[in-house]
């Protein structure tokens, strides 16, 4: 008995059953285009995207936009806004507008950096827990519980003060502590996706476990991760600003929107020099708000059940 070869031309008798089923094929629209279309229907999300893009551009072209070096000291200090100093100068005579522009780099770095770190950690741990179950799941989920029951800001405060407050350390700490939510999310998705027949088919077809996890399971768990990560960028920015405000984040002379507000804790600055603290505060609000709008739009676009 010779082995059948599927590459042989078709025999006539086998053709009979091959009623070509060409009836209504759906329009060829890729998932990505579908999501994009839905996203752009969300007006606030589009506005958020525009604002956030502008902030990124400001971050990239800071040198061009800022009239002064952020740490350059001019001879006038505590000056009110003028043509030369659009937002006035601070107590040491640095140009507030220039510092504002440069500080966007801090927020973007922390936001994107921390989230990239914790999404990577959370995805891997969540996938391992969900896919392998049993003791692997048990250990990972208990560790997740420990991390989740930490009062977030307090632990970050302590950790940052222990390893030294600076941009790199804040990003690292936020990244290392932020993963539990992603891990839970991914675990939940993996748990339900791994029961899907297409994953079982992958096992039956003899695919390797990493291939099944990374090519067949995780791409299907992508939507909730992306939404969570977007909101995560917003909270990381707030967190950095809060830490810097409390003096446990980015420290002067480096400019951060958060530490630009520290001085407003003095009542004189607060009441008589509002140009020192209102603009950076508004910048935090604006960037966080725009990211939250983007996240909301993504959630609507990605998680809606209707197929088109």
């Amino acid at each position: 008995m010779s082995l059948p070869n599927i590459n042989e031309p078709l025999t006539k008798q086998s053709l009979e059953s091959k009623t070509l089923v060409m009836e209504e094929l759906g329009k060829e629209e890729s998932y990505l285009r579908l999501v994009t279309r839905r996203f752009f229907k969300h007006k606030l999300a589009v506005a958020g995207l525009i604002v956030f893009t502008l902030i990124i551009l400001m971050d990239i072209f800071a040198q061009v936009i800022a009239p002064h070096h952020p740490n350059a000291v001019s001879d006038t200090f505590e000056a009110a806004p003028s043509a030369d100093h659009l937002l006035g100068t601070d107590q040491v005579g640095r140009d507030v507008f220039s510092r504002l522009v440069y500080a966007s780099r801090v927020s973007i770095t922390v936001g994107l950096g921390a989230v990239a770190i914790y999404v990577a950690i959370g995805t891997v741990l969540g996938a391992l827990a969900g896919y392998f179950g049993k003791w692997v799941d048990n250990i990972i989920m208990r560790v997740t519980d420990v991390f989740m029951s930490f009062p977030y800001l307090m632990v970050i405060l302590v950790l940052v003060s222990v390893i030294g407050p600076n941009l790199f350390n804040i990003t690292l700490v936020l990244g290392i502590l932020g993963w539990p939510q992603v891990a839970r999310l991914v675990r939940g998705s993996v748990l339900s996706i791994k029961e899907m027949d297409y994953v079982k088919a992958g096992v039956a077809l003899g695919y390797s476990t990493p291939k099944i996890i990374f090519q067949h399971i995780l791409p299907n768990a992508f939507a909730p991760i992306l939404v969570n990560a977007t909101f995560g960028v917003a909270s990381a920015i707030i967190m950095e600003a809060s830490l810097s405000f409390l003096g446990m984040g980015v420290r002067p002379p480096a400019a951060s929107w958060g530490n630009m507000l520290t001085q407003a804790q003095s009542l004189t600055v607060l009441s008589s020099q509002p140009w020192l603290w209102i603009p950076p505060g508004l910048m935090i609000l604006l960037s966080v708000l725009s990211i939250n709008f983007i996240g909301d739009g993504l959630r609507d676009a990605l998680e809606s059940n209707q197929s088109r």
Binding site: D197, A201, H216
Partner: peptide
């Protein structure tokens, strides 16, 4: 193996 549900047996991505 061929599965029962043709909707869940093919990876949608």
């Amino acid at each position: 193996i061929i599965f029962q549900d043709p909707y869940s047996s093919l990876n949608p991505r």
